[in-house]
Design a binder for these strands. Structure first.
Lengths: 185, 185
DNA sequence: GGCGAGATAGAACGATCGGTCTACTTGAGT
DNA sequence: ACTCAAGTAGACCGATCGTTCTATCTCGCC
């Protein structure tokens, strides 16, 4: 990846995530990245492509983080907890502004739009992954349990930047513990 | 309320909720409401005011619906269930596009913005209300339980328009039943 | 009939929007 | 030295944006 492209993606990520996608025009991304319009359009044919790239990069980071958690030498329950802890830690991170994917979906509600599609792709992977993790932890009904996990995750992501993140984080982790405690097996 | 104002609010509600706030310019609201620009600005000093009015109307509708549920002759548990059922029914409604408040917050992340403030105001009322309902249902720790309820609600709202709403609805209602079943008392 | 409230039609404003284009420069590789 | 890829500077385009404004009309009330 070229340096200009990296600067563009970094600037877009920060601005889109912090202020919203429609609220940030390409001019601001260009200025923050210190590149020219021609350079931007050389790397991304349109603003939509830049947005998709931003989401794809976020998706890849979460996948890598989740793969690392699965590769560690831990019990299946602890891997579920580790994934939960990643989310909980995000919520308390400085600059946390909710879930990039949910925020993007709110701004691009048309299911046919490439941005919306990128969101759905990420979410499918995440739900499938949590399903696998819960099955590995002995849950005999992993699909409903995973849906519950994801619901808590989505709710925690939504609320974590609208209120004090501490109780949101605690509620979320307690919910995950409840899922592990009351699992069917 | 004048007829023109009502038409404006109705048009804004449909367009903003369906397509997103930034994605819909005042021209489209004006055309859909069949009023002139002067009429729109006569009733709403700015687009932001129109957006706040849209959210305020949604807030009032939910408050009225909740008040009606509380006024019914039912056990406290059943009132909690009724509130949950409202949410579940919304999720399966034709045209469901998530939570108007969460969607608006995604587009207006600045806590000082009047739109963002309208979102927070609604959410505070909702959390307080659920806290009261759970206390009335005998929950000795109503605040954490209410946070859990709201987290499930937020998660269900977020996911209900990104995937098949049926399992989302079922997961949500099961979560509420779990809250009632495992309450502390 | 006169008045006031509320509505109409629609032009105009300055700013921003996403995207296109030209001319030129720089640096690495051959 | 030449070529090519990638970058620069920045002008330009048509469209849209949210807002302001003027002139006029309609309707209900007194």
């Amino acid at each position: 990846m070229s340096e200009a492209r990296a600067r563009l993606l970094k600037a877009a990520t920060e601005l889109f995530y912090t202020e919203g996608i429609h609220a940030v025009g390409v001019d601001r991304v260009i200025a923050a990245a210190q590149v020219t319009r021609a350079t931007m359009y050389r790397h991304f044919p349109s603003k939509d492509d830049l947005v998709v790239a931003y989401l794809t990069q976020a998706d890849e980071a979460i996948r890598a983080r989740t793969a690392a958690a699965r590769a560690q030498d831990a019990t299946p329950e602890d891997i579920v907890r580790a994934v939960g802890t990643h989310i909980a830690d995000d919520i308390q991170r400085r600059g946390f502004r909710g879930c990039a994917f949910l925020n993007a979906a709110a701004e691009y509600p048309d299911p046919a739009h490439p941005v919306h599609k990128a969101v759905l792709k990420h979410r499918k992977w995440f739900l499938d992954t949590v399903t696998e993790l819960l099955a590995a932890a002995g849950e005999t009904h992993p699909e409903p349990a995973a849906r519950h996990f994801v619901m808590l995750r989505d709710g925690a992501m939504a609320a974590g930047c609208l209120t004090d993140p501490k109780p949101v984080r605690d509620t979320f982790l307690a919910g995950i513990e409840g899922l592990l405690k009351y699992r069917n097996r």
